[in-house]
Simulated scan of single mutants.
Amino acid sequence: MKKAENIIVGISIGDLNGIGSEIVLKTFEDNRMLEMCTPVIFANVKTLSHLRKSFESTAPLHGIDKLDQVLTGKINVLNVWRENIELAYGVNNPVVGEFAIKSFTAATNALKEGQIDVLVTAPINKYNIQSEEFKFPGHTDYLAKELQGNALMLMVHDKLRVGLLTDHVPVNEVASHLTEALIKQKIETVRQSLIQDFSINKPKIAVLGLNPHAGDGGVIGKEDEMIIRPVIKKMFEKGTMVFGPYPADGFFGSGQYEKYDAVIAAYHDQGLVPFKTLSFGNGVNYTAGLDKIRTSPDHGTAYDIAGKDKADHNSFKEAVYLAIDIYNSRHQYAEISKKPLKTKEKHL
């Protein structure tokens, strides 16, 4: 296993008119962070040097042109572009969106090639990144295409972990997406992630119902009884510790979530509204189920405070911590999996 400072954390810079550069540089101003990992920001050193003046960052930047020039103990900035960009904090600009995607795709390629160990993504604007070359709702969908595995959005804060059966799907289409195959896949992805990424040997998983009161026995919608419950029953009978479907309205308020290692919500807001309420701005978005590790803060570009030295970098810092923790957990899991089980010798 690599020493802590040798774990290379690749960082895509996100929307340069947002708070991405601020939260990234504020995170690594603390020299202790450089003892935990080696950051590589996929951007341009001149661009970041200009931006850091806006929030009086003291972070020293080390510009590089190739990844074999990375130095430990430094905030490395890989020059992904050379152009001068006209930036204006708080402005939704498609040109700036193009550079956000240049950073992200370059970082993803480095992740695929094993040139970086983990990827942490700063926030993008989902509207200004769209182009003929990039037609994805966001980071997760692109990573699902480029990397191996079954991508699943898993929100993490301490022991609170909330996954989703459906993520960026309009509410009026959620029910049509819920199939036996999808639900089974998502539960299994969460279970495997809890084991290899969070070192939980026998995870307990709760699944929330789609309809109010989880359908109330079929009175308020049939999906919970006809689709979700049978899948849970089959998987439980085969040894997966999965329970539900539970009515979503009182599940978090009553503290019931504390009894489980993860909760799977049926759709985006059902899971993220309570998660963000309980995580107090320190939550992390983890893309579980892939062969590579990617995390991000649980917030957006925050145009309204961009460039005003008001951005809270805690969520981004937690995203870096989590990526490193998962990297170490996966290596420990791989080592344990290789070792043969010890058996007692029989004495005749």
Rank of each mutant, 00 (worst) to 15 (best):
A122M: 04
R191P: 06
V273E: 06
R330P: 00
Y267S: 06
K112W: 03
T121R: 07
E258C: 07
V120G: 01
P60K: 15
D224E: 06
N84R: 14
L272F: 03
Y257L: 00
L34F: 08
P137K: 11
L147C: 11
Q192A: 14
M155F: 15
E86W: 02
T287M: 05
M155Y: 14
I195H: 05
E173W: 06
D325L: 13
K186H: 13
L272W: 03
H347R: 14
S131F: 01
S329R: 07
G14D: 06
L67N: 06
H299M: 13
E223Q: 09
I64V: 10
V231L: 05
K342H: 12
Q332F: 10
S21V: 07
V96K: 12
G209Q: 10
I13W: 00
V320Q: 02
V207R: 09
T72L: 02
Y246P: 00
L67T: 09
V242H: 01
D167R: 03
I305K: 08
L71D: 05
Q256Y: 02
N31D: 12
T166W: 10
Q69K: 10
L48P: 03
V9F: 08
H268F: 12
S103W: 03
T166M: 09
Q148H: 12
G217E: 06
K102T: 04
E146M: 15
S57N: 04
I324W: 07
V120E: 04
A206N: 00
K233R: 13
T240L: 12
S57C: 09
V96I: 15
S296G: 02
H331W: 12
I101K: 09
L147W: 07
P247S: 10
P203N: 05
L210H: 02
P230A: 08
M1K: 06
S337V: 04
R294L: 06
A288S: 12
M153S: 10
R161K: 04
A144W: 06
T47K: 05
I23R: 01
Y246N: 04
R52E: 12
P212T: 01
V242S: 01
P230L: 11
I19N: 09
S103E: 02
Y89G: 07
C37E: 02
H168R: 04
L87I: 15
N201F: 08
N92Y: 11
R52Q: 15
Q185Y: 05
F236T: 13
E225P: 01
V77R: 01
Y303A: 06
A323W: 07
T179F: 09
P94T: 01
V174C: 12
H313E: 14
K342G: 09
G218F: 07
A181N: 15
D30A: 09
D117C: 00
K308E: 13
K2I: 04
P340F: 13
Y327D: 13
A319M: 11
R161F: 01
A59V: 13
T240P: 05
S199P: 03
N44C: 05
K346A: 11
V96M: 07
D15K: 11
T295R: 07
I23T: 00
